[in-house]
Every structure is written in C-alpha cells, then in structure tokens.
C-alpha cells in the first residue's frame, strides 16, 4: 500500500467534505470506530514492517490530529444546509387547459386506430349545420330560437356534426376522422348549460362498415377513457343524422346500476350519441350510400372534463373562473 498516496487522497477529500458535510457527519466519516477513514489507516499500522511503522506511524498520527482539529474549527452556522427530505417546489412549467388535456388523450387513442384529427369553421351555413345532416327546414331540431344566427342562413355551428358533413363532402372514402371542437347554442346560462361548449365527434366511412364495428369502437374507446371495468349499455336512440341510431351509457359506479342520486336514479349515465350515418346524409355529401356505409358518434366533452377535474360549474370552466395550482 502506498501510504503517501493514501494520505494525499484523504486530505483532498477532507477539503471538499468540509464545505458540504455537517460537523457530526464529517466526524463519523473519518473517525467512526468501524468505517472511519482515519480509523482504517490507524488499523493498518500494526500490519506494517518495523521500519515502515517508524516512518508512517507519526505521519498518520499527525494527519489524524490535524483533521480532528480542523473538524473542531468547523463553524456550523456558516454552512449551506441541504435537507433532502424537504420537497422542492414545482418548476416553471405551465399546464394545459383541462379540455385540451382531455382532447389530446382522446386523440391519442383514435390516432392509434387510424383516425385523423380535423377541424372546421365555427361560423357555418345552414346547409352544413342542418340540411346535409338530414334536418330539413321546419324540423324541430333546427328551430331558429336554439341557434345563434349572424345572418339569415349563417350561424355559429350548433354541433361538430357540421364538420362531419364538410369532411364527407370534401373527401372520398375511406374516411376515419375525429373532430374536437367548440359549439354554440342560444341558451340562458346555468351551471350545466352554456351557450358555449365542446363536442367530440368521430366519423368512419368505408366499404362494409357495420353497427358491430361501431359498438366495438365505442367499447374500446370507453375502456380507454374509464378503464376496463366500465360497464356499458347500448340502446336504440334516435338522431336525425343517423339510422339506426345508438345511445351509449356507462353504468353508474356508485350504485352499480341500481339507481342513486348521482345517476338521477337511472343506474346509467348517458355519455354519447351515435349511429350508422343516414343514407340521405351520405347522399347529400356526395358519397354513394349503396357502396359505402359508415358510423358517426358525438359526445359533449364538458361534463366529462368537469367530472375529471372536479369543476362544478361550466361557467367557471370557460368563463375565466379556474386557475391552476
């Protein structure tokens, strides 16, 4: 063993430790009975030959004395103490709006299934917002009172289905898209109803698309969103732009379908409307309904977002009433 080298190393190490470690820690590191570095050196002395002992013994002793004195001189108060048990505050990163975060998560799911993400204008014509969705004039759902009109025939889109008709008109199958988007209705504001809200729409048109494909897609999607243990219920539901229509509910997690105040005693919570795209819609959009079939689904995003992030009022979600921690 090269004792000279060892002494040098210990001295260098000690200099660094003095600025980092506390008084007790440093004492233990060098002088503890079992693991102390100086203790270790002293333990080596008896193993040396007589001549070496004569030379190195005093050197080791003087190093030991020197370090001990230096340790006593350490002024604890001047030292920068780092307590690693204290949690640091968070960094300078910002957060996404809960709706964007949710949309991204959904998009990621659908991208994996070959869907593109598209968008369309918010200022729409009746043609795309109503007519091509098989909603003729005078249809109760097209009541002027329920939509925000800018000019006669021009309004803010009332659903993302308007983007569906645009995509179907501007593209030929195969088509697979999802549409997250802002929608508008002429409503009086309440905690659950807003004139401004978000919808998420999905559209598939191709050869041989069936209602079985729709149910599979919705099942996978809900498992992704709510976990594999979610219980789904599919039922017939009418929407003018589809036939056959399909409503999708998830079983209430609180009562397991028995009915409680959370699910308004229905046992299930409605999440989504869907169906096979109406024959007339495909036709009006320039797609041959005898060759191609397809499905579409649409859901309100806000209730889902509010549930996930524990927001009780839609006016807070989009009215500037939320901040991030």
């Amino acid at each position: 063993m090269d004792i000279n080298q060892k002494i040098l190393e210990i001295r260098n190490l000690f200099e660094k430790d003095v600025s980092i470690l506390g008084k007790d820690e440093i004492y233990l590191k060098y002088f503890s009975k079992n693991t102390g570095l100086i203790t270790g050196l002293i333990k080596e002395i008896p193993r040396l030959g007589i001549e070496e002992r004569k030379v190195w013994g005093p050197k080791i002793n003087s190093l030991s004395k020197e370090l001990e004195e230096n340790i006593n001189l350490i002024d604890e108060s001047s030292k920068l103490l780092i307590d690693e048990t204290i949690k640091l505050t968070k960094g300078e990163k910002g957060y996404l709006h809960p709706t964007t975060e949710t949309i991204r998560e959904m998009n990621n799911f659908f991208k994996f299934y070959g869907f593109s993400v598209v968008e369309g204008p918010e200022i729409e014509t009746e043609e795309y917002n109503f007519r091509k969705l098989n909603l003729p004039e005078n249809h109760p759902a097209t009541d002027l009172q329920d939509s925000l009109y800018i000019n006669p025939g021009v309004l803010l889109r009332t659903h993302t289905s308007s983007v569906e008709t645009r995509v179907l008109t501007e593209n030929q199958p195969p088509i697979r898209v999802v549409v997250p988007g802002k929608c508008f209705r002429n409503e009086t504001l309440t905690a659950t109803n807003s004139s401004f809200f978000y919808q998420y729409q999905g559209v598939v048109v191709d050869k041989g698309i069936t209602i079985k494909n729709l149910i599979q897609t919705l099942t996978d999607f809900h498992h992704h969103l709510f976990g594999d243990d979610v219980v789904l219920r599919f039922r017939y539901k009418y929407y003018p732009e589809v036939s056959p229509g399909l409503g999708t509910d998830i079983q209430c997690r609180f009562c397991r379908g028995e009915g409680c105040s959370v699910c308004k005693y229905r046992g299930y919570i409605e999440v989504l409307g869907s169906g096979m795209i109406h024959y007339n819609t495909l036709k009006m959009c320039g797609i041959d309904p005898e060759v191609y079939t397809g499905f579409a689904f649409g859901m309100g995003l806000d209730r889902l977002v509010m549930q996930r992030y524990k927001i009780d009022d839609i006016r807070k979600l989009y009215g500037g009433g939320i901040i991030y921690k």
């Binding site: 195969p174 698309i209 494909n213 897609t217």
Partner: peptide, 16 residues
C-alpha cells in the same frame, strides 16, 4: 349485437 373490430386498412392521415 356482437362487437367486431374494423378490418379495413386505415386511410391516409388527413390531419391538417
């Protein structure tokens, strides 16, 4: 109704 996955090839990505 028995669910069944879509078997067709996914179309080209048209995400703008």
């Amino acid at each position: 109704i028995k669910p069944q996955p879509i078997n067709n090839y996914p179309p080209t990505d048209i995400t703008p």
